[in-house]
């Protein structure tokens, strides 16, 4: 079953579109990167999926409309917002007890084992933990719940590089399997680009790219062109160009690789370059 199916989602804050005809689907077992600049509508889209905000359009999460029965959806979906949403007064042990009490699919032993690998002790309060430790705690709780969809909204915002790296390593190695889907929003593309199976670029409330990572090479081609072929290459209407020491790196969309072969060094653009190409075109 499709995990998330969104069709023509719309939401406005005053005159700005937080979501403008947003449509996409998330299949089981995929890791989707929802990528866009600050204020592009990432958080609004995720909140819509979680039933935390109102919107227009049709949206089914695991077959349910999140506007009704948020708590039913939350039995099978977990959510980590950017750091700091765990209640500061709560003790670590109480957080474990609470989640165990309200969530049927919580595995206490697993949570305690994950916490044992960190510097967090059970009788500390959340306010005594550093930002990185709060995220570790939240991730330990969430990873101990057997769910179908994990939603991460800028989960590593404000964390130092060591925590960020171990966060994604833990997520990918210990958590992810083919029965779970993950959707991660971020504006730091380079950090997650290697994990993703699927890309959603969003800008000013609109989806500007919706593609499997594997399919990118069918559509997008990057060619490193020297000065002698530049004019010929430019006539093929690249969507983006940037200077690379004496040459130009051009990104083409829907131009066959064969016809570009003679112009220079052909490759598939990195997610970061594609992000810059597609968003600066807007």
């Amino acid at each position: 079953m499709t995990v998330v199916s969104a069709r023509d989602l719309n939401k406005r804050f005053g005159s700005t579109h937080a979501m403008h005809n947003v449509s996409f689907e998330i299949e089981p077992g995929s890791i989707v990167g929802l990528i866009g600049p600050n204020g592009a509508g990432k958080t609004t889209t995720l909140k819509a999926i979680l039933g935390l905000t109102d919107f227009e359009g049709s949206l089914a999460v695991l077959g349910r409309d999140p506007r009704r029965g948020r708590h039913e959806i939350m039995k099978r979906v977990c959510f980590i917002a950017d750091v700091g949403v765990l209640p500061r007064w709560m003790k670590v042990s109480d957080a474990v007890n609470y989640v165990e009490g309200v969530h049927d699919r919580f595995n206490r032993d697993k949570a305690l084992a994950l916490l044992a690998e960190t510097d967090i002790s059970l009788n500390q309060r959340v306010k005594q933990l550093s930002k990185g430790m709060v995220t570790q705690l939240h991730l330990a709780l969430v990873m101990s719940i057997d769910v179908d969809l994990l939603v991460l909204d800028e989960p590593t915002l404000g964390l130092d590089i060591l925590y960020r790296k171990s966060f994604y390593e833990l997520l990918l190695n210990d958590y992810f399997d083919k029965s779970t889907s993950i959707i991660i929003s971020t504006h730091q593309v380079e950090e997650i680009e290697s994990l993703l199976t699927h890309l959603l670029f969003i800008n000013q409330g609109e989806i500007v790219l919706d593609s499997a990572i594997d399919a990118l090479s069918d559509t997008y081609t990057e060619v490193l062109v020297g000065p002698d072929h530049l004019e010929q290459a430019m006539s093929l209407n690249p969507i983006h160009s940037r200077d690379v020491i004496g040459k130009k790196s051009l990104i083409f969309t829907d131009v066959s690789k064969a016809s570009l072969q003679g112009l220079g060094e052909v490759s598939t653009p990195s997610v970061t370059d594609l992000f810059v190409a597609l968003l600066s075109r807007e």
Partner: peptide
């Protein structure tokens, strides 16, 4: 912390 509370299956 409401985002945490609401991320759990409590109506």
């Amino acid at each position: 912390s409401i985002l945490f509370w609401k991320s759990l299956p409590v109506s």
